[in-house]
Design a protein around this nucleic acid. Structure first.
Lengths: 233, 233
DNA sequence: CCTACCGATCGGTAGG
DNA sequence: CCTACCGATCGGTAGG
């Protein structure tokens, strides 16, 4: 008697659960969504091994075995959350860096575009604090098959992002908006900058993040100053 | 029949074990030192909950209960390692920033001192990769009493370091070696820079760290450029 | 340093 | 969605 389809075929159930009575957040799909949220939170709080399925079930108000109506295993649950986090990051880092129309007459605006890009990243980190934590777990705490599968995903995303950055900075350099540095170096510098920002945000969870947020604009200006010093403008 | 003193009174045993026969690295004190090394490695690899005492014992070639001749508990072991890591960091970050003799005629050399400071940090991170990982665990993965005890230590160290940085940058500003920025902002900027560097190093474990190391000098110059642009020199 | 053992909890399954 | 239960492993103790 399937209360829910196995975790791969959940197409038509969705509509039914929405038509059925009860609070909209408590349907079949609702429980699964809540599980994903609770699991991300717990992984972020305790690490991979430290996050137990029993605790997740408890926070959801159900029994542990019932979780297996929504997931295949703890490992699969983590991988799914990691994929969600990486996709959310991809969306947040957005198309601001897009260098499709380069070389044209309007090549400018790289500073503003990078600033917008930064805003997207920091907003994402504010709104989805667990996503960042999951990525950190994934690079440092896993072992065996799980480590390998997570590693592939992280590496692919990293390579892709770095390539986009290099294109962006190469374009900015051609436009004379930054110094004549190696675009690869500028990309590395940017990665260092935002990794530093995100690490600090991780540290200052619990109130002091405001201070950092206040200073973000100034930190950004200091960063850009390094890139642009002695450039055309 | 005490093979070793309980983990607090280990004064005279040390000499005896050195006088006794056998390989010098296998004495009573030797096992304890090896345990600390193995434990740091395992905590760094798997996280706090994921690092089991049985695995530590296995790597040492002894049985799990024997560990309790050297430690009081898993929690106490972690706290000790965290203290070691923080102390090692303190030593590595060294006295280069010391602003004891400021205002005198020789106020200069801030750039070189900060560069030396950076070298100390990066060398430390290279030689003690687990120490950084332990600090990260401590801020993100613990719970209960352990979280609280670790939090106190980390906060104290952080506050102390930040204060030293602010003094340093205030001195550099008076000397006209950097722009007229708020010293607190410059300290924040520095923290962001090295957190970014250390995060990247964490990511690139396994070979590609070389690339980063090659670029370190250039990244440093880019950073300093931001601080010094439009300053006296 | 060891063997033997503890209760608690782990991820996961059977079966309804 | 549940109860009942699995073998494995957890941190830790007793006792020599």
């Amino acid at each position: 008697m399937p209360w829910i389809a196995t975790p791969g075929a959940s197409t038509e159930v969705e509509t039914e659960s929405r038509l059925g009575g009860g609070h909209p957040a408590d349907g079949i799909q609702g429980t699964r969504d809540r599980l994903l949220a609770v699991a991300a939170e717990l992984f972020a709080e305790r690490g991979y091994a430290g996050a137990s399925l029993a605790e997740m079930a408890s926070r959801l108000g159900i029994r542990k075995p019932s979780l297996y109506n929504h997931i295949e295993s703890k490992e699969a649950l983590f991988i799914e959350l990691l994929d969600h986090s990486l996709e959310a990051w991809r969306e947040a880092s957005g198309p601001e860096l897009g260098v499709g129309v380069e070389g044209g007459g309007s090549g400018g605006g790289h500073r503003r575009r990078l600033r917008d890009h930064l805003r997207g990243i920091m907003d994402f980190a504010d709104e989805s604090p667990h996503a960042m934590a999951l990525c950190r777990l994934a690079v440092s705490q896993l072992s065996g098959d799980l480590e390998q599968r997570a590693g592939e995903r992280l590496l692919a995303q990293r390579v892709d992002y770095q390539a986009r950055l290099e294109s962006f900075f190469a374009s900015a350099r051609r436009a004379g908006e930054v110094g004549t540095f190696d675009p690869r170096l500028m990309a590395l510098s940017w990665l260092t900058f935002i990794d530093g920002l995100l690490t600090h945000q991780l540290f200052s969870t619990g109130g002091r993040a405001d201070l950092y947020r206040e200073r973000l604009e100034e930190l950004w200006q200091l960063f850009w100053r390094g890139l642009a010093a002695e450039a055309g403008r």
